[in-house]
Design a protein around this nucleic acid. Structure first.
Length: 260
DNA sequence: CTTAATGTTCCCCA
DNA sequence: TTGGGGAACATTAA
């Protein structure tokens, strides 16, 4: 469910309910979502006040009056404010006003106490400057799609938005990053900014079941130009969009507009 | 029954 | 250290 625009949307929809709230108690039930001592984690957050909620890459970071809690939604994680508890509810935060639920069927998400992983994240795609981006991109000899999905290279892009950005920039997903021309790398930088900004404005992409903290679906999926459009006509040239596998992920591109 | 799904980590090999 | 390739994690839906 969640790449940068979806996580940003979740943060924006949940923050007003959380800022200044006190966590009365918490409980966690999944050994995957909350690895380690779940009871200890629950005790640690109980009684804490939430001072701030922000996004870093695909992580949601809750700054508490003592310490910080981070939530990664994995593939199917949801944060629901006052939502109904279900078979896949693996975290419950009882607040002094309302209840925050963590729901995650596949349990690829994580709720952790200030994880080190966040320190290893690359720059934010909406903050990195043009020159910095172009230099970093062209210094790597790997394929451009897996590179853009590498969170230590750039934090926040996932399968959908990489396909969309490469389409917009006219770059083949298997192109070698170091061999992308400077103008095209600049175009990619711009495409990433525009697509993420538009996706946030449309409150993310709901492909299967993504919803924000209020249970509301996003609308950006209607504006996808590559992802999920296998066999459909390219919106630039009319050629059929092709789907291949790159780095074990479904990859959509236009064979005519995105040459190697 | 098989495959794919918005993610990440770990392992092996060159 | 960089990079390619694959498996694993758990669940559901087509």
């Amino acid at each position: 469910m969640p790449e940068l625009p979806e996580v940003e949307t979740v943060v924006r929809s949940v923050a007003p309910h959380l800022i200044g709230r006190r966590i009365v108690s918490a409980s966690f039930t999944s050994r995957f979502v909350t690895p380690g001592n779940r009871k200890k984690l629950a005790e640690r957050v109980a009684g804490r006040t939430i001072n701030h909620v922000r996004r870093r890459g695909k992580f949601i970071v809750m700054t508490l009056d003592e310490g910080a809690l981070s939530i990664h939604l994995g593939m199917t994680g949801k944060l629901l404010m006052d939502g109904p508890k279900g078979a896949h509810t693996h975290g419950v935060f009882a607040l002094d006003r309302g209840t925050l639920l963590y729901d995650d069927p596949r349990q690829f998400g994580r709720i952790e106490w200030s994880p080190r992983r966040i320190d290893r994240l690359g720059p934010e795609p909406l903050e990195i400057g043009l020159q910095d981006f172009v230099t970093r991109l062209r210094s790597r000899k790997t394929r451009v799609k897996p590179l853009l999905m590498n969170q230590s290279f750039l934090a926040g892009l996932g399968n959908i938005y990489v396909d969309e950005a490469l389409f917009a920039a006219g770059i083949h997903p298997l192109a070698i990053a170091s061999r992308v021309s400077e103008p095209r790398a600049a175009k990619l930088h711009q495409a990433i900014r525009e697509i993420l900004t538009a996706a946030i404005e449309h409150r993310g992409s709901s492909i299967s079941d993504y919803v924000d903290a209020e249970g509301k679906r996003g609308e950006f999926q209607d504006l996808h130009r590559a992802y999920g459009r296998e066999g459909e006509p390219c919106l630039k040239c009319g050629a059929a969009i092709v789907k291949i596998v790159v780095g074990q992920r479904g990859t959509h591109y236009c064979p005519k507009c995105q040459r190697r």
